[in-house]
Amino acid sequence: MLNLLLEPLGYEFMRNAIAIGILVGILCPVVGSYLIVQRMALLGDVIAHCVLPGLSLSFFFGVDILIGAFGSGILGALLIAWIRSQTRVKVDAAMALTFSTFFALGVTLITVLKNKLDLDSFLFGDILGVAPHDIQRTFVIAALILLMIKLFYKELLFYTFDKTGAQAIGLPINTLYFGFMAAITLTIIASMQAVGVLLVISLLVGPALTAYLLVKELHQMMIVGAIVGAIASIVGVYLSYYRNLPSGPAIVLVSSSLFLLALLFSPSQGILTRSTQTESTTRLMNRFKFLRRND
């Protein structure tokens, strides 16, 4: 058994894959928790698609992809906010139009600019091709975002729970919103290589949702979500190694399986455990009625 776990670690690509998997497995659920509690889970998917034009332009001009992807992702998020504020268009429609337009623009740019961007690895991730400098970059991004969340936790808690109330006490809600968008975009960029833009949404919401079913506070949701995310990444990479599965989808499927377990067996909200409680309550009530009849 131990050999099964240790053998893959003999390869550098596996060590790198597990390292970056743990990093994004921790980072994504922490940021994703905010998406869930604000009912904005799909925004993660939208931004993930919106980074493509920036990525393509970065390749063409030879600048760091972080800059292009970040600018493009933020631009997409701001565009949605702008459409919402200026028109009667609802957020879901604004999101659908924006992300498909950005994605189409990105694919067009790749063709027109004759980029050597590997669309497949961008879409589905290539965690086994991770280089040490990718890990360093992901580590810096994760450390920065986690530090910011720690520093501004109480303000973000207020803002995400009661936006109007937060504005009423004078919190800079536009700055908080922009910071939040920046954190999502950076998280997506950091996770692109692990699971790809099509599946990053699953790592953003899956482990955090699993935690949501198990705990009662936001910070607990983040901690439990991070543990679940890290476990999903590690198990997914091992499955990918031993079963020759695509790594990104393997991670996502493990994450979704853990959610399914919580959905069924969560002590407070599990479908099976909840019905058991109801049955035991019914049994108790029947017993009570029985005793009263016999009194």
Partner: peptide, 20 residues
């Protein structure tokens, strides 16, 4: 205007008053 499914306890809601 409030999402009552938000994962937060009563104590922490009231503690928000001291944010500023």
């Amino acid at each position: 205007q409030i999402d009552w499914d938000y994962p937060i306890t009563v104590w922490n809601v009231v503690m928000m008053a001291r944010t500023r």
